[in-house]
Design a protein around this nucleic acid. Structure first.
Length: 503
RNA sequence: GAUUUGGUAGCUCAGCUGGUAGAGCAAUACACUUUUAAUGUAUGGGCCCUGGGUUCGAAUCCCAGCCAGAUCACCA
């Protein structure tokens, strides 16, 4: 129990006084709500016979007491509306306790109240509820930050400290009502994608979070332990290998919104747990998948904003199809003027030095190309752009390119300088897949902590035969950042991971 | 991890080259029946992040640490 502040003590005293007066501070009750703040404000016109018997519930967020009458603001799920309370309306009899003592002294800002009354316009022209019945629904024992707007609309005492906002998101949501919009939009984004994929007939599935072997991506995992099985388990870093098993099993299209966990650094783009959607569709390849991504993301933008154009920071990003497409070699040539498509490792290393790209001796050909691309191209790609045909060394789960040796059939979509999706024609040749795993094991032995594990059961599944399959992963948090114009992943997660709060 | 900025009342923040801790809002008390950042009068409220040091004296200067933000590098 922390030390109580003066204001917390006052609120506890107020609670006791309410109880003494026979007013239950936490009544067990339902309160029938028939209207909402913003709905009334948007629809009520002076003189209308509508909204003459309304019932609302929410927090009391401000109070202006003028003797026997008071104004205040009630904040419900939709927003705020002014309320007008006159003593003799809520206390028609001799007993004025509810107004004189309870409302004026013992209620506090932040308390949940239920009101009944009728809408009207004040002399100042503000849509207001004239309260005829007032009921305390739940007492608040801690003071909320009081954020105010002056007559020019300028905000005072804004609750902006990011640490407090993230740690006490409940306060952030109450006080900074616009924060809700970000999360409502995020859910709308999920709904839009679900609707799109369901309409195509793909099945939403669930696969294990606790995995005896982790796989499907290059990343360091979290480990945990199962007592009864007496075994080490990993929290998944991707769900790719399980979804492909389902394609082996005969589903033509499966997808999963997957909460994944990676034990790596944190930044404004990285949270230890994050969400991806992964989609696998049988009898398709990566070129087909590229069309799907364009179509789906364009639809998401339309569903969320009513237009394909989305403001992100200082840029307007247009998701209208078709998006630009470059092979990785073309992109590098486009932004540096250098054609690296026929270079060997030595020439690539020399080129990297000339371009002032930081490389080291452990890097092979594929990694060198990837570094050159990342340094010279990514930062230039604001509008959604597909980059295709990656070096095979970087893509142990992707199918070798049908016509281009050393490359795989893979693409990423880059948008606002960041990767938003990664997709390929899935490697379904079990012998090739085993060799790729084995070269990953070699990397692991050399100290690469992100190297993949060899998954015998996954190979067994492939040996039973997997149809040609296109696979896709989209970082939902990254996409949400773009679609809601937020600068940090913490702003699109309700509860971003934080260090423990000190006492 | 590197660089950098910050941590003072419930909230937002002042506090200069060291000299008794400040404002607005919130809270408490009183007044006020159409206000709206309500108003007026009065009142209370502080481990100045933590620990060392310099000094007669530290919120302030120095060192170390903790926490957080921003930028950069790597994984989505």
């Amino acid at each position: 129990m922390h030390h109580l502040t003066e204001q917390e003590l006052v609120r506890r005293e107020n609670l006791n006084k309410l109880v003494s007066a026979g007013i239950e501070p936490y009544p067990s009750t339902t309160f029938e709500v028939n209207s909402f703040a913003i709905e009334i404000k948007n629809n009520f016109a002076d003189g209308d016979q509508t909204y003459q018997s309304v019932s609302l519930a929410g927090r009391l967020m401000s109070r202006r007491i003028m003797g026997k009458a008071s104004f205040g603001e009630l904040q419900d799920n939709t927003g705020r509306i002014q309320i007008y309370i006159s003593r003799d309306d809520i206390c028609p009899g001799e007993d004025k306790t509810l107004y004189n003592d309870a409302f004026k002294k013992w209620f506090d800002l932040g308390d949940f109240i239920g009101i009944k009354g009728y809408a009207f316009y004040t002399q100042m022209g503000e849509c207001t509820i004239h309260v005829t019945e007032l009921k305390l629904l739940s007492k608040a024992l801690r003071p909320l930050p009081v954020v105010k707007k002056d007559e020019d609309g300028k905000v005072h005492d804004a609750f902006t400290d990011p640490e407090q906002r993230y740690r006490q998101r409940y306060v952030d949501l109450v006080v900074n009502n616009h924060i809700k919009d970000v999360f409502v939009k995020r859910t709308r984004m999920y709904n839009s994608m679900r609707a799109y994929l369901n309409a195509k007939g793909y099945l939403e599935v669930e696969t294990p979070v606790l995995q005896p072997l982790y796989g499907g991506a290059a990343a360091r995992p979290f480990t945990t332990f199962h007592n009864t099985l007496d075994m080490k388990l990993y929290l998944r870093i991707a769900n790719e290998l399980y979804l492909k098993r389902l394609i082996v099993g005969g589903f033509d299209g499966v997808y999963e919104f997957s909460k994944d966990f990676r034990n790596e650094g944190m930044s404004r783009y990285h949270n230890p747990e994050f969400t991806q959607i992964e989609l696998y569709v049988a009898y398709k390849d990566y070129l087909w998948m590229m069309d799907l991504v364009e179509e789906m993301v364009e639809k998401v933008a339309l569903d969320m904003h009513g237009t394909t154009k989305v403001q992100v920071g200082e840029n307007i990003i247009d998701f209208k199809r078709p998006w630009k497409r470059y092979t990785m070699y073309e992109a590098i040539q486009h932004f540096t003027g250098i054609d690296i498509s026929n270079m060997d490792e030595t020439e690539l290393r020399k080129t990297a030095h000339e371009l002032k790209v930081h490389v080291d001796n452990t890097m092979g050909k594929g990694k060198l190309i990837d570094e050159i691309f990342g340094e010279t191209c990514e930062g230039n790609l604001i509008q959604p752009t597909f980059i295709t045909d990656y070096p095979v060394e970087m893509s142990p789960l992707a199918k070798k390119h049908a016509t281009k040796p050393g490359l795989v059939e893979r693409f990423e979509a880059i948008c606002n300088k960041k990767e938003i999706c990664n997709a390929f024609s899935e490697l379904n040749d079990p012998i090739d897949q085993r060799q790729r795993f084995e070269s990953q094991l070699e990397l692991g032995k050399r100290g690469d902590e992100e190297a993949m594990m060899l998954d015998e059961d996954f190979l067994r599944a492939l040996e039973y035969g997997m149809p040609p399959t296109a696979g896709l992963g989209i970082g939902m948090d990254r996409l949400a950042m773009i679609m809601t114009n937020q600068n940090s992943i913490q702003d699109v997660l309700f509860f971003p991971q934080m260090k423990p709060e000190k006492e």
